[in-house]
Write a protein that binds this DNA or RNA. Structure first.
Lengths: 249, 249
DNA sequence: CGTTTGATTGACACGAGTCAACACCAGTGG
DNA sequence: CCACTGGTGTTGACTCGTGTCAATCAAACG
């Protein structure tokens, strides 16, 4: 399998062979991690930057009353915040949701990249800016969209993100998340997530076979949930465009 | 008045005289902007990075049905995203909420800083990371806290942020926001914001005189709203600590 | 097979939205 | 000086989206 971090970064601009090789080497050290494992905990001193090559993970916080809020899903090709070591303590945790293959960018690697590899550096900053953009979109999603559109929006976003790294088959992709994990992301109860998913199925928008999720009518789901992919800052916000296929595909 | 951007950045680590001077010069060109003016709109090509020296502003998005979500308040000393020009289009708008004094960091200035002024560069990145951290905290706030705690949390955050730039007088500060603007930030209706504020007053937690907001019992408000300032990444998450006073104070 | 984890249901409670009216200013202009 | 205005804050009555609790079902698993 190609390195999905590279694949994702090349969405914006192609990398030189040297940059690609640097990334390959830096992420060569791969760890296999089981499901539901914390990689970094709130309060920890940040160490290396985790890079997810396979599996789903998330950023989350736990409130004093035990409630959990997932602030972002991390999919293959995603990475933690660069320069996180500028901050003294992690303000949130990162944990796997499924078994994952994880590499790490060492602090020195990041510093070397920012100092001597401008193209690569820009690509990594771009990824960080997209992360922030997803947080902003998540906020509007939580604040101003009712549950059905909220979840519909998430399903659209996941489709695009997984398409980018080649993990979507048309409008179908693996979404190995429980309804409780969806609920913790969307700020809803598991019961309500269940009912909303049923409603989306009843409307002929989606279908689930086990962990596979199929979007039956992407145009209708996009319109219904108010999804607009510009905040993902892909080539020009194109969705499902064949030219998005990378050279490695 | 001292340059509040400098004051804020020096929260983390002191800047050299040269760095301070560079910032002073770069932000010398100050514009006065009236209330409710868009500085950048969703879809625009990003230009310079706005720096807010006085007044309140916000990042926001408007949904197709006209609802507005404010994703962040910008207070004096805050600035837009660095490297925003890596992205082709703005995915959100930035607008003033009150009359503001605004400077701009030109693209070339940002590039020069990242290339040749590592300390300053780190300070600016730190500000960006804090922005992202506030978005994450905002997400958990929206997703998992009921309205009263949500607003209480916001009032705590504003206190700390305004203390940093010297705009708080003890536990009192100017909060020139309408209830509608609070509602658009918190994902609530104006009516409900009104009732929540009344409840907080009735509980003896806050008081309002015109635009001034006084937190009557900060400890109780912090405990009540689950506020924990570590995500603001101040010196060591100290709150109300006299050593936080900067040399310029 | 029992056990466990996750999905599904129904009844009910409650937080928050909506709508509509009214009060309270700060301007503004006659 | 006063009527008029528009924006903001305040209130009450009612609706509705979501949460909670608890039971049941289904599928995965040792």
């Amino acid at each position: 399998m190609p390195n999905l971090l590279i694949r994702r970064l090349e969405m914006v601009s192609p990398l030189s062979a040297a940059d690609r090789q640097l990334l390959e080497q830096a992420t060569a050290q791969v760890r296999q991690v089981g499901a539901d494992q914390d990689l970094i905990c709130e309060g920890d001193l940040p160490r290396a930057v985790p890079v997810f090559l396979e599996g789903f993970a998330c950023r989350y916080k736990t409130l004093s009353d035990g409630k959990r809020q997932i602030m972002a899903y991390l999919v293959p090709g995603d990475l933690g915040d660069l320069y996180i070591f500028l901050l003294n303590r992690m303000d949130h945790s990162i944990a796997t949701l499924t078994p994952c293959r994880v590499a790490e960018l060492a602090r020195e690697t990041v510093l070397e990249i920012t100092a001597r590899h401008p193209t690569l550096s820009h690509a990594l900053w771009w990824a960080g800016l997209v992360d922030a953009a997803m947080l902003r979109e998540g906020l509007t999603n939580m604040g101003r969209r009712p549950a059905e559109q909220r979840i519909g929006h998430l399903l659209c976003e996941m489709l695009v993100r997984l398409q980018v790294v080649g993990l979507a088959d048309g409008n179908r992709y693996e979404l190995p998340l429980t309804q409780a994990e969806l609920a913790d992301m969307m700020g809803l109860s598991t019961v309500h997530v269940n009912r909303v998913l049923q409603a989306l199925r009843r409307q002929g928008l989606i279908r689930r076979n086990g962990k596979a999720l199929q979007i039956l009518d992407i145009d209708r789901l996009i319109a219904f949930s108010g999804f607009n992919p510009i905040y993902l800052h892909l080539n020009h916000g194109r969705l499902n465009d064949p030219t998005i296929e990378t050279a490695s595909g």
